[in-house]
Computed example of a mutant assay.
Amino acid sequence: MTSLLLVRHGETDWNRQRRIQGSTDIPLNEAGRAQAADAARHLRDILDTNAPVAMAASDLGRARETAQIIADALGVGGVGVYPDLRERAYGEAEGLRPEEFSERWGSWDRAEVPGAEAWPDVRRRVLRGLRSAVGDARSRTAPGTSTVIVVSHGALIREVIRHASAGEFPLDGERLPNGSIHRLRFEHDHLSLLSYEAAEDALRMTATTEAVAPAGRTA
């Protein structure tokens, strides 16, 4: 059994400008580097320090730099780079803002964008990449339970979560923040979702609201 921790890369200028990045290789900005350092601190808190840890990343620069910042902070030697873990290619939509996308192609869910990678192909690719990352980690580390930290991209991580939860998550319109961490189990070539940060934030918000809600009211 392998514990998979999927981390979305830190912020880029295109993230800040709400531009569609896809396979365009946009580097981290300073805020993104700070988010990567924050993710490393969070990972240090939740990792089993006695279990072997491996690092893997998409081959796009924003993911590789995020992974290297985390690896350096955790003392993990080396980051495996996997092109199969890169973001979905959005074809002619890359570089556009959402409103520009809507003007050209309408609804995001039903749009057929020239040059965009089909979602079934994305899913096959990312699952192949995760199998390779886990297999390589197992060959490099001690037998038994291990942990692989995988730094990838928002749409790709959403597709993995959707696959692992049989379509139950993420919720419609839910955005996975830069630097967010999502936990899965990889066992006998099967993925199971343990938690993802957007859902954890929602649960914390609900608990806080209920705690301060006046008696007789529901939040």
Rank of each mutant, 00 (worst) to 15 (best):
M55Y: 05
R97D: 03
Y82H: 09
A34R: 15
A137W: 05
P143Y: 01
W119H: 09
L43K: 05
D48S: 07
P52L: 02
W14E: 07
L96R: 10
S3N: 08
I46C: 10
P114E: 04
I26M: 01
S107T: 00
A54E: 05
T2H: 04
R104L: 02
A31H: 15
R44D: 15
A63M: 08
D72H: 09
R128G: 15
S3A: 09
M55P: 13
V122N: 05
E117V: 15
D72M: 03
L43E: 12
R44I: 12
E30S: 07
L28C: 08
D59W: 07
V76K: 06
V126P: 10
S139W: 05
G22V: 14
I70F: 02
E65K: 07
W105I: 03
R8V: 07
G135W: 13
Y90C: 01
V134Q: 02
R8H: 02
E117T: 15
A89W: 07
R64C: 13
R124N: 14
Y82K: 00
V126K: 10
Q17G: 05
R128Q: 10
W105A: 08
L127C: 01
P98Y: 04
E87V: 06
S23R: 14
Q35L: 09
R104T: 03
G78H: 08
L5N: 04
V76N: 08
A40Y: 13
W119A: 11
A54R: 12
R64P: 14
V126G: 09
V81I: 11
Y90Q: 06
S23V: 13
A116T: 12
R19C: 01
T2K: 03
A133L: 09
Q21T: 04
A39Q: 14
E11L: 00
A51G: 09
W14H: 06
R123C: 10
R41A: 15
A31P: 05
H42G: 14
N29F: 08
G144I: 08
G61I: 12
P52I: 06
P83V: 00
T141K: 04
S139Q: 11
G144R: 10
R88M: 12
A71E: 09
N15G: 02
E92G: 00
L74N: 11
R123H: 09
N29V: 00
P27D: 05
A93P: 03
V7I: 02
W105T: 07
Q17E: 15
S107L: 01
L96S: 08
V79F: 07
D121P: 00
A57S: 15
E30C: 01
T24R: 07
G22D: 03
Y82A: 00
R41C: 10
A51V: 15
R110E: 15
A111Y: 06
A89H: 13
D84A: 12
T12M: 00
A93I: 13
S58L: 02
N15C: 01
P83W: 01
W105P: 07
W119L: 13
T12P: 03
P52Q: 07
D13T: 04
V53P: 12
L74R: 09
Y82E: 01
H9E: 07
D48L: 04
A31S: 12
R97I: 04
V113Q: 01
L28Q: 11
